[in-house]
């Protein structure tokens, strides 16, 4: 409301083209990719002149777009094949299946341990240091380790997803249990609300935002861990395909698959998680869980390592 009234007198003044240019935010947003593409193209030309042997190593933007378009369209064209053994959809389907199964296991075990840690101080002391160690462990270490133990196949990526995702679930669920409002429980007791109804209407709703934070983190980290595991010990899947292009020394393939990878993660986030969380949090006035995660991670040490591990 206040912003609207504050803007009124401004809008009556005629705005010059330069100020409009300065104020708009979509122009620079569009300008950014254009600048990057320009730099990319010009840089390529310059490097081709002064460093001739790098020609086939550095891909042009067109090559990348071509490769991506080919990957998308080729499975549906008669007589054309993907360069790799399996096409894009099969590859991502496989990875998604692994991610899904690892994720479910991590959620179930993580929730149980997290609940126990939130409810009992003894259990918390028992697990605490080991959960922190798991949080700080890079996915890379798990990927190599499980690859050596389980060999090629499905098991190594799935176990990597479980091990990288589980500490985030535990930390978030524990935090959620600790943050349940005591007063509400006391009130439920005072009004003689039966225990299962109190659980249903007090504990679960107050746990939900933390649960969602857990799901998001476990998913995005599990996804990155999965790809690293597939790079080292996969015979198929997104990570294996990226490694395939790396071994073939085709940088445009890597960049193309990286784009697929990022697009896929963003789509999953926007189309699946946001929809679900909107539905679950319909009853709440207005707190996006993003803000909640940030508030959570403003806090103590767990935070730093959590966000950090989220990256790789």
């Amino acid at each position: 409301m206040t912003t609207a009234t504050a803007q009124l007198p401004k809008s009556t003044k005629p705005v010059s083209l330069v100020t409009r240019w300065k104020r708009s935010t979509w122009i620079p947003r569009v300008l950014f990719p254009i600048t990057i593409l320009l730099f990319w193209q010009v840089g390529m030309q310059v490097i081709r002149r002064i460093w001739p042997f790098a020609v086939d190593v550095l891909p042009t933007p067109m090559e990348v777009v071509d490769m991506m378009w080919g990957e998308i369209i080729n499975p549906f064209v008669e007589g054309k094949q993907a360069i790799t053994r399996e096409n894009l959809y099969l590859t991502f389907g496989r990875s998604l299946l692994r991610l899904g199964s690892g994720f479910v296991i991590a959620m179930v075990i993580g929730t149980i341990i997290g609940l126990a840690m939130g409810l009992s101080k003894a259990v918390d002391a028992f697990f605490h240091d080991w959960v922190m160690a798991l949080l700080a462990m890079p996915a890379l270490a798990w990927a190599l380790f499980t690859g050596l133990i389980f060999g090629m196949g499905n098991r190594s990526p799935i176990v990597t997803v479980v091990l990288t995702g589980i500490p985030f679930v535990i930390v978030n669920v524990r935090e959620g249990v600790r943050n349940t409002p005591r007063e509400l429980f006391d009130m439920a007791n005072a009004f003689k609300v039966p225990r299962n109804r109190a659980t249903r209407h007090v504990l679960i709703p107050s746990l939900m935002p933390f649960f969602f934070a857990a799901i998001r983190y476990a998913f995005s980290i599990g996804w990155k861990g999965l790809v690293i595991a597939e790079v080292f010990s996969g015979q198929d899947g997104a990570g294996w395909t990226i490694k395939f292009y790396y071994d073939a020394h085709r940088a445009h393939g890597i960049i193309g698959y990286a784009f697929f990878f990022v697009i896929f993660a963003l789509l999953l986030e926007k189309l699946v998680f946001e929809k679900i969380s909107n539905r679950v949090f319909k009853w709440r006035p207005k707190t996006t869980d993003v803000a909640l995660v940030e508030a959570l991670f403003d806090g103590p040490d767990d935070a730093a390592s959590a966000t950090a591990a989220a990256q790789i």
Binding site: K224, V227, I228, I242, I255, A258, V262, I312
Partner: peptide, 9 residues
């Protein structure tokens, strides 16, 4: 974007 991609490129 995951670090793996930058590392490979």
């Amino acid at each position: 974007a995951p670090g793996l991609i930058w590392a490979l490129i």
